[in-house]
């Protein structure tokens, strides 16, 4: 259908024009602005050297890594369980687990306050049990809880989809050869789910790096990188540094996705 070429090109043009005007050009501009402040191009160096930025970058990356690993373990166990067992209420349980799929970060921050805030559920319970309120919402723990809250639903979806595609005969074969549950997990399940887990993990990491709403609602003292960028931009009016930092943050995130893609040899973003 060679003659369709003109149509196909015509159909691509609007998207290409929008993307170029509102994404490619602005990103290039952001890069230039990042180097146009008091510090000049060394703003990009300062993002790594200046202790305040460096500390925040380290804590953001650490938090994201811990969140990613915890989410993969939790969603891996629950997802494989749901995919491999048939029982009454299974669909309801799956639906409930994936319902918060698109809750925005601000709302999730509020959910964390409901759980661990000053009037929250868990502090109230600990107050009754040990006479002390264990308030965790406004600390690193609160952020961690919020981040796994929004990562679990989407990761579970990916795991269930991948686990349903796994050939049940592989597990059968392993069992008939006398493999224990543990060996089935190590030798069959984890290798079989590896691409899906890597893809979901990469998305989880990228989302945690850029997450902002949760920290914003919790108004914590912990400065994750997006909060630093926001502060530089609004309170300090240091647009150049904000631009440089967000460019670096974007680059880090993109690198994580590219790395995961090189491991799986597949388009990682498919899990989004």
């Amino acid at each position: 259908m060679k003659t369709d070429r003109a149509w196909l090109i015509g159909m691509t043009l609007p998207v290409a024009a929008m993307f170029f005007t509102f994404f490619a050009v602005p990103l290039a501009k952001l890069f230039v602005i990042g180097g146009s402040g008091e510090l000049g191009w060394s703003a990009y160096v300062a993002a790594f050297i200046e202790p305040r930025y460096w500390r925040s970058m380290v804590s953001t990356v650490t938090l994201s890594v811990v969140v990613t690993i915890s989410t993969l373990v939790i969603s891996g166990v629950a997802g494989v369980f749901l995919a491999r067992h048939e029982f009454a209420g299974r669909q309801v349980l799956t639906a409930l687990l994936t319902l918060p799929l698109a809750f925005p970060g601000v709302v999730i921050g509020f959910m964390v306050i409901m759980l661990g805030g000053r009037q929250g559920l868990i502090p109230t319970i600990t107050n009754m049990l040990i006479g002390e309120k264990l308030v965790f919402a406004y600390s690193m723990v609160g952020l961690f809880v919020g981040y796994i809250y929004f990562s679990i639903p989407r990761t579970i979806l990916t795991v269930i989809a991948a686990a349903e595609k796994l050939d049940p005969q592989l597990i059968e074969a392993a069992r008939s050869l006398g493999a224990s549950n543990w060996r089935v997990l190590i030798d069959v399940l984890i290798p079989g789910l590896k691409p899906a887990l890597l893809a979901a993990g990469a998305i989880c990491f990228a989302t945690s790096m850029g997450a902002f709403g949760t920290a914003f609602t919790l108004a914590t003292k912990i400065d994750v990188l997006p909060m630093i960028i926001y502060t530089e931009f609004t309170l300090q009016a240091n647009i150049a540094m904000a631009a440089a930092l967000s460019f670096v943050l974007g680059l880090l995130t993109w690198a994580a996705l590219a790395f995961a893609r090189s491991l799986t040899g597949n388009t990682v973003a498919a899990a989004a």
Binding site: V15, F19, F22, F23, V25, P26, L27, K29, L30, I33, A206, M209, G210, F212, P226, I229, Y230, F233, I239, A242, A243, S246, F247, L249, G250, T253, W254, L257, T267, A269, A272
Partner: peptide, 24 residues
């Protein structure tokens, strides 16, 4: 092309928003 279209999702929203503000 698919990967490029995915970039606004992969990059932190804050970065995209800042880019739009400084440009337009």
């Amino acid at each position: 092309i698919e990967e490029m279209l995915m970039l606004p999702v992969a990059l932190p929203g804050l970065a995209t928003a800042l880019a739009l503000i400084v440009t337009y």
